Computed example of a mutant assay.
Amino acid sequence: MLEQRFLEEASAQELDVCAYRVFMDESRPLVSGLAAILGDFQKLFSLTYASVHSKQPRERVRIGIEAATQTSFGFAYTYSGSVGFVLTLPNDQSTLFDTDLDEAMNVVFSMAKSPKPEQIVEYARQYGPGPVRALFNWASHHADHSMGADIEWRRVNEVRASLFIQPPELRELRDAIALTSDVRSTKVEVAGELVGIDVDRRTFHLRVEKEDYIGLLSDDIRHAVEVPKHYHAMVEERTITKYSTDEEKTTRILLSLRD
């Protein structure tokens, strides 16, 4: 009865409710694990909302002031079985359509249910590496503490979105993100002086004004070249982003040379 009265009062104040239940095999959960999980979930939701609201991918795990203000959950109460938290968040209840907050919660739940590398890459391209990195941290802390999650996004008696995920699934999600990376490449044509080349290691050193281009030779370059000499060069810049660490590594590949 008290729970029903709380949901009705929350709705009257235009507050949606997030019921977050953490379950585990052990009977004694650690505070450090619970604190990390809730903090990760807040960051994951805020970053996803920022991407949904701005319609731009979030490249880094940084939350702006506006997004932080609009997505900060309020604490209401706890409940048993195993450990449950009831959180509240202001949301526009006058519209018949999903708000950006609703969409962000749906995206979070969808990402958590997508442990395949190709699905992770697609989410990262649409919403940015930032939310995927936050998802990795959230899944890692759940997996490290062998805690599952049962989350409901509610408005009075209506469950608007939900997620039930067990520790083995969270470990699978964590491992999939750890093994997934995205490769982006662009080609640029530059004019500079070829000052070094290593045929055995297949590397080159091209000086373009004040910048040095150092990288690998493509298999297409088998003809003799002169060093030092000025050339027009076609260079591919290939960037690999590892989602679990948000690290980027850029490699330059010399595709062709002409006088």
Rank of each mutant, 00 (worst) to 15 (best):
L2M: 09
L2N: 09
E3K: 13
F6Y: 13
F6P: 09
A10W: 04
S11L: 06
C18V: 14
L30N: 03
L30G: 13
L30M: 10
D40M: 02
F41H: 15
Q42W: 09
F45N: 09
V52Y: 03
H53K: 15
H53D: 15
K55E: 11
E59S: 13
R60Y: 12
A68P: 04
S82L: 10
V83W: 08
V86A: 07
L87V: 07
L87R: 01
P90M: 01
N91E: 02
D92M: 03
T99C: 06
N106F: 01
A112Y: 07
V121Q: 14
Q126E: 10
G128E: 09
G130E: 07
N137V: 03
N137Y: 04
A149R: 06
D150H: 11
E158D: 13
F164V: 15
I165Q: 12
Q166P: 08
P168N: 08
R171I: 00
R171Q: 11
T186E: 13
K187A: 07
V190S: 06
A191S: 15
G192D: 12
D200R: 13
T203Y: 04
F204P: 00
L206H: 00
R207A: 06
V208N: 10
Y213P: 01
S218R: 03
V225P: 06
V227I: 14
K229R: 15
K229Y: 08
H230N: 14
Y231P: 09
M234F: 01
V235D: 00
I240C: 04
Y243T: 05
K249A: 15
D259S: 05
